[in-house]
Protein backbone atom coordinates (compact mmCIF):
# COMPACT_ATOMS: atom_id res chain seq x y z
CA UNK A 1 0.00 0.00 0.00
CA UNK A 2 1.19 3.56 -0.75
CA UNK A 3 2.11 5.76 2.17
CA UNK A 4 -0.31 8.36 0.89
CA UNK A 5 -3.81 8.22 -0.51
CA UNK A 6 -5.63 10.68 -2.71
CA UNK A 7 -8.86 11.60 -0.99
CA UNK A 8 -11.46 13.28 -3.19
CA UNK A 9 -14.02 14.98 -1.00
CA UNK A 10 -17.25 16.55 -2.23
CA UNK A 11 -17.40 20.20 -1.19
CA UNK A 12 -20.48 22.38 -1.11
CA UNK A 13 -21.08 25.51 0.91
CA UNK A 14 -24.57 26.89 0.30
CA UNK A 15 -23.40 30.39 1.26
CA UNK A 16 -20.64 30.45 -1.36
CA UNK A 17 -21.25 27.77 -4.01
CA UNK A 18 -23.93 27.39 -6.64
CA UNK A 19 -23.09 23.72 -7.06
CA UNK A 20 -20.80 21.17 -5.47
CA UNK A 21 -17.32 20.16 -6.62
CA UNK A 22 -14.62 17.69 -5.63
CA UNK A 23 -11.45 18.72 -3.82
CA UNK A 24 -8.45 16.41 -3.71
CA UNK A 25 -6.30 15.97 -0.61
CA UNK A 26 -3.20 13.85 0.00
CA UNK A 27 -3.50 11.99 3.25
CA UNK A 28 -0.74 9.90 4.90
CA UNK A 29 -1.95 6.39 5.68
CA UNK A 30 -1.61 4.74 9.08
CA UNK A 31 -2.21 1.08 9.79
CA UNK A 32 -5.86 0.28 10.51
CA UNK A 33 -6.98 3.68 9.26
CA UNK A 34 -10.67 4.07 8.35
CA UNK A 35 -12.09 6.63 5.91
CA UNK A 36 -13.37 8.76 8.80
CA UNK A 37 -9.75 8.98 10.11
CA UNK A 38 -8.65 10.24 6.71
CA UNK A 39 -11.46 12.82 6.64
CA UNK A 40 -10.51 13.90 10.16
CA UNK A 41 -6.90 14.29 9.03
CA UNK A 42 -8.10 16.71 6.35
CA UNK A 43 -10.30 18.57 8.82
CA UNK A 44 -7.55 18.86 11.47
CA UNK A 45 -4.53 19.49 9.26
CA UNK A 46 -5.50 20.69 5.79
CA UNK A 47 -8.88 22.42 5.80
CA UNK A 48 -10.71 23.09 9.06
CA UNK A 49 -13.74 24.38 7.14
CA UNK A 50 -14.64 20.81 6.06
CA UNK A 51 -18.03 19.81 7.47
CA UNK A 52 -18.52 16.20 8.54
CA UNK A 53 -21.03 14.67 10.95
CA UNK A 54 -19.81 11.93 13.27
CA UNK A 55 -20.22 10.77 16.84
CA UNK A 56 -19.15 7.36 18.07
CA UNK A 57 -16.59 6.17 15.48
CA UNK A 58 -17.69 2.66 16.38
CA UNK A 59 -20.50 1.94 13.88
CA UNK A 60 -23.12 2.42 16.60
CA UNK A 61 -24.57 5.87 15.93
CA UNK A 62 -24.93 5.93 12.14
CA UNK A 63 -23.90 9.59 11.90
CA UNK A 64 -21.00 9.23 9.47
CA UNK A 65 -23.00 7.67 6.62
CA UNK A 66 -21.67 8.74 3.21
CA UNK A 67 -20.93 7.37 -0.24
CA UNK A 68 -17.43 5.98 -0.52
CA UNK A 69 -16.35 5.33 -4.10
CA UNK A 70 -20.02 5.39 -5.03
CA UNK A 71 -21.24 2.91 -2.41
CA UNK A 72 -23.26 3.97 0.62
CA UNK A 73 -21.16 3.07 3.68
CA UNK A 74 -20.27 4.18 7.17
CA UNK A 75 -16.98 6.11 7.05
CA UNK A 76 -15.99 4.74 10.45
CA UNK A 77 -16.45 1.12 9.35
CA UNK A 78 -14.65 1.31 6.00
CA UNK A 79 -10.94 0.61 6.17
CA UNK A 80 -8.77 2.60 3.80
CA UNK A 81 -6.70 -0.46 2.89
CA UNK A 82 -9.88 -2.24 1.73
CA UNK A 83 -10.45 0.29 -1.06
CA UNK A 84 -7.18 1.39 -2.63
CA UNK A 85 -5.23 4.62 -2.82
CA UNK A 86 -7.87 6.73 -4.61
CA UNK A 87 -10.94 7.32 -2.52
CA UNK A 88 -13.91 9.56 -3.22
CA UNK A 89 -16.25 10.59 -0.43
CA UNK A 90 -19.61 12.17 -1.21
CA UNK A 91 -22.63 12.95 0.95
CA UNK A 92 -25.71 10.71 0.72
CA UNK A 93 -27.34 11.64 -2.56
CA UNK A 94 -30.89 10.89 -1.47
CA UNK A 95 -30.89 13.79 1.01
CA UNK A 96 -30.35 17.55 0.62
CA UNK A 97 -26.79 18.67 1.43
CA UNK A 98 -26.38 21.05 4.36
CA UNK A 99 -22.63 21.51 3.84
CA UNK A 100 -19.91 19.27 2.36
CA UNK A 101 -20.55 15.78 3.75
CA UNK A 102 -23.42 16.74 6.03
CA UNK A 103 -26.94 16.03 4.83
CA UNK A 104 -30.36 16.95 6.13
CA UNK A 105 -32.07 13.68 7.02
CA UNK A 106 -35.07 15.28 8.77
CA UNK A 107 -37.40 13.95 6.07
CA UNK A 108 -37.03 10.58 7.78
CA UNK A 109 -38.49 11.88 11.05
CA UNK A 110 -41.55 13.06 9.14
CA UNK A 111 -42.00 9.61 7.61
CA UNK A 112 -41.56 7.96 11.02
CA UNK A 113 -44.47 10.00 12.40
CA UNK A 114 -46.81 8.66 9.71
CA UNK A 115 -46.42 4.98 10.61
CA UNK A 116 -49.38 3.78 12.70
CA UNK A 117 -48.02 3.51 16.23
CA UNK A 118 -47.97 0.45 18.46
CA UNK A 119 -51.57 -0.24 19.48
CA UNK A 120 -51.90 -2.81 22.26
CA UNK A 121 -54.65 -5.41 22.28
CA UNK A 122 -57.62 -4.30 24.41
CA UNK A 123 -57.95 -5.52 27.99
CA UNK A 124 -54.37 -6.72 28.40
CA UNK A 125 -53.51 -7.68 31.97
CA UNK A 126 -50.57 -5.79 33.44
CA UNK A 127 -47.70 -6.33 33.58
CA UNK A 128 -47.54 -7.18 29.88
CA UNK A 129 -45.74 -10.45 29.33
CA UNK A 130 -44.19 -11.55 26.05
CA UNK A 131 -42.74 -15.00 25.51
CA UNK A 132 -39.16 -15.28 24.25
CA UNK A 133 -40.47 -17.25 21.27
CA UNK A 134 -42.27 -14.12 20.07
CA UNK A 135 -39.40 -11.70 20.62
CA UNK A 136 -36.68 -13.37 18.59
CA UNK A 137 -38.16 -12.73 15.15
CA UNK A 138 -38.13 -8.95 15.30
CA UNK A 139 -35.00 -8.72 17.43
CA UNK A 140 -32.77 -8.13 14.40
CA UNK A 141 -34.78 -5.02 13.54
CA UNK A 142 -33.80 -3.50 16.90
CA UNK A 143 -30.20 -3.47 15.66
CA UNK A 144 -31.03 -0.64 13.27
CA UNK A 145 -28.80 2.37 14.01
CA UNK A 146 -30.76 4.68 11.69
CA UNK A 147 -27.78 5.54 9.51
CA UNK A 148 -30.23 5.74 6.57
CA UNK A 149 -27.80 4.09 4.14
CA UNK A 150 -30.73 1.88 3.08
CA UNK A 151 -32.84 4.95 2.33
CA UNK A 152 -29.91 6.43 0.40
CA UNK A 153 -29.28 3.39 -1.79
CA UNK A 154 -32.98 2.81 -2.55
CA UNK A 155 -33.52 3.77 -6.19
CA UNK A 156 -37.20 4.55 -5.57
CA UNK A 157 -36.21 7.36 -3.20
CA UNK A 158 -32.94 8.31 -4.83
CA UNK A 159 -33.84 8.35 -8.51
CA UNK A 160 -37.62 8.37 -8.72
CA UNK A 161 -38.79 10.30 -5.67
CA UNK A 162 -42.00 8.29 -5.44
CA UNK A 163 -44.17 8.41 -2.38
CA UNK A 164 -42.40 5.42 -0.83
CA UNK A 165 -41.51 5.43 2.85
CA UNK A 166 -38.30 3.49 2.20
CA UNK A 167 -36.59 0.39 3.62
CA UNK A 168 -35.88 1.83 7.09
CA UNK A 169 -39.58 2.43 7.65
CA UNK A 170 -40.68 -0.87 6.15
CA UNK A 171 -38.45 -2.36 8.87
CA UNK A 172 -40.10 -0.12 11.46
CA UNK A 173 -43.58 -1.17 10.30
CA UNK A 174 -42.55 -4.85 10.26
CA UNK A 175 -41.17 -4.68 13.80
CA UNK A 176 -44.52 -3.28 14.97
CA UNK A 177 -46.56 -5.73 12.90
CA UNK A 178 -44.58 -8.65 14.35
CA UNK A 179 -45.14 -7.50 17.93
CA UNK A 180 -47.29 -10.15 19.68
CA UNK A 181 -49.26 -7.58 21.69
CA UNK A 182 -49.91 -5.22 18.79
CA UNK A 183 -53.46 -5.20 17.54
CA UNK A 184 -53.43 -3.51 14.14
CA UNK A 185 -52.56 -4.42 10.58
CA UNK A 186 -50.39 -1.85 8.80
CA UNK A 187 -50.88 -3.29 5.31
CA UNK A 188 -53.54 -0.69 4.44
CA UNK A 189 -51.19 2.15 5.37
CA UNK A 190 -48.22 0.59 3.57
CA UNK A 191 -50.22 -0.06 0.41
CA UNK A 192 -52.22 3.16 0.15
CA UNK A 193 -49.93 5.73 1.76
CA UNK A 194 -46.56 4.08 2.21
CA UNK A 195 -46.02 3.27 -1.48
CA UNK A 196 -44.85 -0.29 -0.73
CA UNK A 197 -45.78 -1.29 -4.28
CA UNK A 198 -42.91 0.82 -5.59
CA UNK A 199 -40.36 -1.42 -3.90
CA UNK A 200 -39.14 -3.94 -6.48
CA UNK A 201 -37.16 -5.98 -3.94
CA UNK A 202 -33.75 -5.56 -5.62
CA UNK A 203 -32.08 -5.92 -2.21
CA UNK A 204 -29.66 -2.98 -2.38
CA UNK A 205 -30.93 -1.88 1.04
CA UNK A 206 -30.09 -5.28 2.46
CA UNK A 207 -26.63 -5.28 0.89
CA UNK A 208 -25.57 -1.90 2.35
CA UNK A 209 -26.93 -2.38 5.88
CA UNK A 210 -23.94 -2.11 8.27
CA UNK A 211 -25.88 -4.11 10.86
CA UNK A 212 -26.53 -6.92 8.36
CA UNK A 213 -30.29 -6.78 8.86
CA UNK A 214 -32.05 -8.90 6.23
CA UNK A 215 -34.21 -5.88 5.35
CA UNK A 216 -35.74 -7.26 2.16
CA UNK A 217 -36.17 -10.89 3.15
CA UNK A 218 -37.33 -10.42 6.73
CA UNK A 219 -39.16 -7.07 6.69
CA UNK A 220 -40.13 -5.85 3.21
CA UNK A 221 -41.23 -9.15 1.67
CA UNK A 222 -43.30 -10.17 4.72
CA UNK A 223 -45.00 -6.75 4.55
CA UNK A 224 -45.58 -7.13 0.80
CA UNK A 225 -47.10 -10.54 1.48
CA UNK A 226 -49.40 -8.98 4.10
CA UNK A 227 -50.51 -6.54 1.41
CA UNK A 228 -51.23 -9.51 -0.86
CA UNK A 229 -53.35 -10.92 1.99
CA UNK A 230 -55.39 -7.72 2.16
CA UNK A 231 -55.63 -6.70 -1.50
CA UNK A 232 -54.79 -9.49 -3.96
CA UNK A 233 -55.71 -12.82 -2.42
CA UNK A 234 -59.49 -13.36 -2.30
CA UNK A 235 -59.12 -16.63 -0.36
CA UNK A 236 -57.18 -15.02 2.49
CA UNK A 237 -59.50 -12.02 2.44
CA UNK A 238 -62.49 -14.36 2.84
CA UNK A 239 -60.71 -16.32 5.58
CA UNK A 240 -59.89 -13.08 7.45
CA UNK A 241 -63.52 -11.95 7.21
CA UNK A 242 -64.78 -15.28 8.57
CA UNK A 243 -62.30 -15.11 11.46
CA UNK A 244 -63.43 -11.58 12.31
CA UNK A 245 -67.07 -12.67 12.18
CA UNK A 246 -66.34 -15.53 14.60
CA UNK A 247 -64.64 -13.02 16.86
CA UNK A 248 -61.17 -14.61 16.58
Amino acid sequence: MNKEIKLNIYRFDPEKDKEGHFQEFSVPVKEGMVVLDAVHYVENNLDPSLAVRWNCKAARCGSCAAEINGMPKLMCKTRVDSIGDKISVTPMKAFPVVKDLVTDVSRNWEIAKKIPAFTPKPNLKEPWVIDEIDVSRSREFRNCIECFLCQDVCHVIREHDKNYIGPRFMVKAASLDMHPLDNIDRSKFLHEEGGAGYCNITKCCQSVCPEHIAITDNAIIPEKESIVDSYYDPLTMLFKKLRTKNGK
Binding site: G70, M71, H155, E159, K162, Y164, Y198, C199, T202, V208
Partner: peptide, 23 residues
Protein backbone atom coordinates in the same frame (compact mmCIF):
# COMPACT_ATOMS: atom_id res chain seq x y z
CA UNK B 1 -31.89 -1.45 -14.83
CA UNK B 2 -34.06 -0.44 -11.88
CA UNK B 3 -31.26 -0.33 -10.72
CA UNK B 4 -28.58 -2.34 -12.50
CA UNK B 5 -26.30 -2.09 -9.49
CA UNK B 6 -26.33 -0.63 -5.99
CA UNK B 7 -23.16 1.39 -6.72
CA UNK B 8 -23.73 5.02 -7.74
CA UNK B 9 -21.61 4.92 -10.89
CA UNK B 10 -23.12 1.72 -12.32
CA UNK B 11 -26.78 2.07 -11.48
CA UNK B 12 -28.13 2.67 -14.99
CA UNK B 13 -31.17 4.28 -13.37
CA UNK B 14 -32.11 7.96 -13.33
CA UNK B 15 -34.98 10.28 -12.56
CA UNK B 16 -35.53 10.81 -16.30
CA UNK B 17 -36.72 7.20 -16.64
CA UNK B 18 -40.30 6.26 -15.91
CA UNK B 19 -40.87 3.92 -13.01
CA UNK B 20 -43.98 2.36 -11.54
CA UNK B 21 -42.44 -0.56 -9.63
CA UNK B 22 -45.04 -3.16 -8.77
CA UNK B 23 -47.96 -0.74 -8.76
Amino acid sequence: NHPQSCAADERGDSNSRGYSGET
